[in-house]
Nucleic acid binder design. Sequence first.
DNA 1: AGACATGTTGCTCA
DNA 2: ATGAGCAACATGTC
Length: 286
Amino acid sequence: MPELAEAEFFRKRWHQAALRSPRILRIHTHDDKKLFRTAPAAALRAALIHSSYSTSAAAAKQILFRFQRPAIATAPAIESWLGIHLGMTGELSVFEPRHIPRKHDHLILYTSTHALVFSDPRMFGRIQFQSGSTAPTWWTQIAPALLSTAFSDKVVAAFLNRRARAPIKAVLLMQERFPGIGNWMADEILWRAAIHPAQPAGTLQPAEVKKLWRECRAVARLALNTIAGRGDDLPADLNIAIPDTWLFNHRWGKGGHCPKTNKPLARAEIGGRTTCWSPARQKLHA
DNA sequence: AGACATGTTGCTCA
DNA sequence: ATGAGCAACATGTC
């Protein structure tokens, strides 16, 4: 499920509930599962219990939740950084405080009013955890956001030149330069930019590079507003508000039609991932 | 039954 | 050394 905007959607969902009652009263973890490979569950529990939620943020496909616990007679103050990557099937949800852990509920933070649940059947997700006042590197080392000024057309052009022989679709999936772009966003961007997904990155014309850069930002902005909502608003469900004028609603099954040309869409594996494009408007060139 | 899945990583080979 | 391609990860659904 989760790319840039879905990560923000899920962050908001936990955030709204955690604001209601910030204090963590009880914690459930699936200690031995793969998700905790980089964050020992016992240490996480010890630091988070009786901590209170403070703030959160999403960047790329990574979500950060911060907690703090003031000093008491028997223990010093502690600041905690909880990072969640949703992998392919991860989800953050909110249930009533008596929620009973289900098979794939790997981390549950219980407050007086809610159960904050991280579930992930395929376990391609990841839980990161660090205590202390300095931000962890798994958070600070995320590439500059698509909507930041550091993500410039020049930076994109230089990156495309280094990856000159790879299909542009594969290049868009590289998180080191396109943080948060996943399979459907990459297809959406290429479709809007009218660039064939198999076009080698180094063969894009300067005008195409600029278009691609613009559409990266446009799709990021639209996806965030539509999927994660504006301001305090949080859509009731993931992806319900996506209009049929996007490729998104037509790309999944076979037999879809391009909402711009009304011609049939094509599907093939490009860059190791199932790719959907509109042959009528995305053509390979020398 | 078999194909397929909105992601990342670690390995091979050029 | 750097870049490209691909299997592997673990489970559910169509």
